[in-house]
Write a protein that binds this DNA or RNA. Sequence first.
DNA 1: CAGGGATATTTGCAAATGCATTTAAATCTG
DNA 2: CAGATTTAAATGCATTTGCAAATATCCCTG
Lengths: 162, 162
Amino acid sequence: MTDQSPPEKPPGTLPRLGEVGLTNYAPYLMNRIMGRYNASLRDEMAGLGLTTPKMRALAVLSVIDGPLIRELAVYSVVEQSTLSRALDQLATDGLIRREADSSDSRATRIFITDAGRSTFDTLWPRMAEAQSRMFRGIPDDERRAFVGTLQKMLTNIRKHEI
Amino acid sequence: MTDQSPPEKPPGTLPRLGEVGLTNYAPYLMNRIMGRYNASLRDEMAGLGLTTPKMRALAVLSVIDGPLIRELAVYSVVEQSTLSRALDQLATDGLIRREADSSDSRATRIFITDAGRSTFDTLWPRMAEAQSRMFRGIPDDERRAFVGTLQKMLTNIRKHEI
DNA sequence: CAGGGATATTTGCAAATGCATTTAAATCTG
DNA sequence: CAGATTTAAATGCATTTGCAAATATCCCTG
């Protein structure tokens, strides 16, 4: 892939992907990087009996206590129906606990168990490693600016979300 | 989610995800943003008879001409077996063409057809829109710096890739 | 407060996915 | 150069996925 020229701007015309260049189109880069990140964790997860949805749910639950399932679905970026089944498995394995919401009997709140926390603690160092591999050679202030931009982007896409 | 303090650094201890905060952990933010981006394109893709793997393959093929299937798999971030089947469908629909490599008869090179290019051209404005939604309110120089960091990250993860 | 939406979650089902294997061809090695 | 090894792509198969529908409950409106 050889494309580093800045995007031209012929007024009124949308530049094509070929003109922008794959590697100047942010979503492409992000998908590619995240594909690699997710792949790099798959083996470790498999060893712990986790899939990506199960791992994501545990990760969120290690931070957010007792969310509703639909909230957990948004935070963990997993389809609700997929999450529902992932939670079945996590509950069977004793890593989470479903608890009926006190004020709304349709709703279920999810809590991570000690076993779940300890499973996630086993995985977390690999996740931290994977992150620092991604940022290898990138100075701290650049990394901070990058994360700051990501946070703005999350706010943008969140407009019609939680 | 309320966490904006910078990561502390107790020497020798890895801070937990709960301490870092979900929204300071870059891979989480990126997965969340890309989840939304991909979802935002799903309807448009469905209307064109495309799935994510098919769309990604077309996108890459609109830029890179005649890659091997395994190369296309890397560029489009799709499992080789998944891609193989996606290509079956794209070929059936006349959007791509398989062509035996001239010097290696195991290998197949993939070419986008005019119909494929025109299908992708229908989709591309939505992809561009989705991108600009992501970057709404983010100044140009910040966006450029962000993409620059992404490119460095891609180089990092690429070490053992194409 | 009855009836008609909304909302939370689960489930049926067809399609998509990914691992492992197969097939075929190229390359290496003694 | 024969046999073993690696590589490219396709395929068998069990699992996972996600859409749509079902179920259960809640909330709003007249």
